[in-house]
Amino acid sequence: MFHRANLRNNSKNGRSQVGQNRNSKKKPVAKLTLITEDNESFTVCKKVAEMSMFFKNMLQDTEGIPAPFIVPNVSGYDLKKIIEYCSYHCLDTDCPNDNDSLRSRRDRKIGHWDETFVRNIINKDGDPVIDNLVGLTKAAYFLDIPGLIWLMTKSIANTIDPKPIAEIREIFNVPVPSEREEEILQR
């Protein structure tokens, strides 16, 4: 069982404390138990879970909090990070959504907290643990969390953007050059 720590303790920024410890009973809020495919279980506030369109629709459909819900396709590590992200961002009012044009999304800067969040997925050598980035992106895509998809895809794009092909292949563990340049260069 994973014990989620207080994810946001700084009340200086005026946000109310949402990501509370599971054992804290001060504010009785609706909670939801999630069990990942590798049998880790998490308890989250309804508000946090509703950051995910997947859970939001599910909660609406079931009209209430169901019994422990099994989340397919998402590993324990990914769900831990997703809950960390959602706990911080569940009170945001200006989450990026699908309606944003590419231009406005591009102009939006990655916030300080988000930067730290992504950096924590990066190991000590400074190399991005691309598996974790991709895994988290897939999980975010499955659970449909627009803000996190936005953040993760941008982070991956930043990882590959200025690099030559060989380096990208190394990062993504692509074995051999596929010589298809002719085909593309025809345009």
């Binding site: 590419l102 591009r106 691309i130 598996d131 991709v134 992106t137 897939k138 895509y141 998809i149 895809t153 941008k154 991956i156 794009a157 930043n158 590959i160 953007d161 292949r169 993504f172 563990n173 692509v174 074995p175």
Partner: peptide, 17 residues
């Protein structure tokens, strides 16, 4: 290969950046 496991919908999002 990790690259082969990225679904194309996610790839499109990545490339849009």
């Amino acid at each position: 290969s990790l690259a082969a496991t990225v679904p194309i919908d996610i790839l499109r999002l990545i490339f849009s950046w």
